[in-house]
Design a protein around this nucleic acid. Structure first.
Lengths: 337, 337
DNA sequence: ATGAAAGCGCTAACAA
DNA sequence: TTGTTAGCGCTTTCAT
């Protein structure tokens, strides 16, 4: 097979100049129908496809955007990634997917590092970055933040209303008569991360219902995996803290908790209620199925891609934006649904 | 902030020629320590990083490899992707991750399309490709196949011994006295895909034990998700086929089946045993926890990256290779463990 | 509406 | 050991 054809080959085949071929490829408007057809025929005949390296070198764009998430094997991020890829594809972009493992250096690398070079912009779901990391980032690379938003707000952002979502989930538990509601993965103080915001919402709901807040029921976790949820639930039971419900800050934690409660002979929703966040597919099939706060992943993906593409097209354009995506509570067996 | 520095800027700063800077960047050996140090200092001072488009245009390499899997939200592939990224990083490569949704056109795009251009080679887990697609692929792009291997074998391949793995899993069920073992996701005829190979292994085990094969117990599924497993298990029970065990061809199917059996009042492992494939994290925390065939994902990732990098470095090098990675059966509660 | 020329940043080939 | 030249494929600028 011959070497890959270049624009020059197409031009010669079609009897036009390279520039004209370029005009056709890039849908430049001032091209006669005749010429366009001739060039297209040459392209098809030779099997020509643009060399992106050449194009990028010249115009400084790749047509790719990076999506950097903390962990691909957290189902929420895998599902979100699928939506982002769909949305990007619909808009003619390709997604370069990265897993940062929630390590600050790797989150920084998404913003500054090697990988960012392939990319016209980055959608980043940060966990470890601090405000200064963002303040000192290279402004030439457009960035949209997902979920967590380190204070300082120098970057476009997409997320749900975490305070309200947690408040509603807690209200649901309260409405079922639960009073000793533990927060698995919660945080009472510290930066305004997702964990903190959701815990704040939880406290708001307790306060409004006149239920006293018990700091012992806020259980920090190392990560948001099954094993961490299982460990937290086991510890709650073994320490005799007498919880009658678990508000788990993601579904993996909740599913792990279900397992631990089962091992400890507690029935859900008989003895305790359990609620999660994210609405991953597993939660529809667990035993019992899991009540959860379902963020609108499609809306999140769509907003993130839109904001990013706008930034790419107009780097100094609009003011900072913060898109608040919708969410709803899906009641399933784990709270009597 | 100034424009991104180029090699020329570094060269001027260090008082050398651009070529010398290039030599340093690429660890060319014939560079004096003095010069190397001076250049490095200039690089650090200016914050220089190579422009990959320029490099790719010149030498035709990007340092990136593509991993294309059918579905990222199938946990097995997310976990595998993590291993591949780790392995690639350890070898100085970046991974471009793609989800093909098991659509033939998208699998082809991984081999031929736009995306492949950024990439020095592709690790592809195909589901929809046919042998001709591979036979007619562009040989300039090195490819390693994972899991499925369309017949014809013109491509390096990494997988487990599916026949043996399924036989061993079936033997495990037989040893527990099970005789009416259904295969969820199985295939009796057709191309030698993973489903067919595993069903063959199942039949081998039945044959060796003198248990008659019943084609009604082979249940095809549309996809390998919870919902498909749930549907298949429900249908088995409702049709009164009287299975006493389910060999599910991945863990998602098995976990979905557990849910359906629970809904139908069947106890696992009391009334039926259930076995899966993949050993995803969810299977350690389901109720009951799931017995499963665990492929050595790390070995698969390592072998795939190694084979691919060797091909990239020596496109016309070694003969075709087929790496058979290890697996083991992990016995958990769903078969009395 | 189309073409000619120049150059994006880098490194291969060759020269010194 | 280091420097010079040329050109990878594309698109921008300017000319026609």
């Amino acid at each position: 097979m011959a070497a890959r054809p270049r624009i020059k080959d197409v031009a010669e085949y079609a009897g036009v100049s390279p520039k004209t071929v370029s005009n056709v490829i890039n849908n430049f408007e001032h091209v006669s129908e005749r010429t366009r057809a001739a060039v297209q025929e040459a392209i098809d005949a030779l099997g020509y496809r643009v060399n992106i390296a050449g194009r990028q070198l010249r115009q400084g764009r790749t047509g790719m955007i990076t999506l950097a998430v903390p962990e691909l094997d957290v189902a929420y991020f895998a599902e979100l990634a699928k939506h982002v890829m769909d949305e990007a594809a619909a808009r003619g972009r390709t997604v370069l997917l990265h897993s940062t493992e929630a390590v600050r250096e790797r989150e920084l690398a998404a913003l500054h590092g090697f990988d960012a070079q392939f990319s016209d912009g980055v959608i980043l779901s940060p966990l470890a970055l601090n405000p200064r990391d963002l303040a000192t980032r290279d402004r030439r690379l457009p960035v949209v933040l997902l979920g967590e938003r380190p204070a300082g707000g120098s970057t476009d952002h997409v997320g749900i209303d975490n305070v309200r979502a947690a408040r509603e989930a807690t209200e649901h538990l309260l409405s079922r008569g639960r009073r000793r509601i533990a927060v698995v993965g919660g945080a009472v103080r510290g930066r305004q991360g997702t964990d903190r915001l959701r815990t704040d919402g939880y406290r708001e709901a307790l306060g409004a219902a006149g239920v006293p807040f018990d700091a012992d029921l806020v259980i920090p976790v190392g990560a948001y995996h099954w094993r961490d949820g299982a460990r937290a639930a086991a510890s709650l039971v073994e320490r005799g803290l007498g919880p009658d419900a678990l508000l788990c800050l993601n579904d993996h934690l909740a599913l792990g908790a279900l397992r631990a409660l089962h091992e400890h002979g507690r029935s859900v929703p008989g003895d305790l209620d359990v609620v999660g966040f994210d609405d991953i597919e597993a939660s529809r099939f667990s035993v019992p199925s899991l009540t959860t706060v379902a963020p609108d992943k499609r809306e999140i993906a769509r907003a993130a891609v839109s904001l990013l593409l706008e930034r790419i097209d107009a780097p100094d354009g609009a003011a900072l934006r913060d898109h608040v995506a919708g969410h709803r509570i899906i009641v399933r067996e784990s709270t009597g649904g």
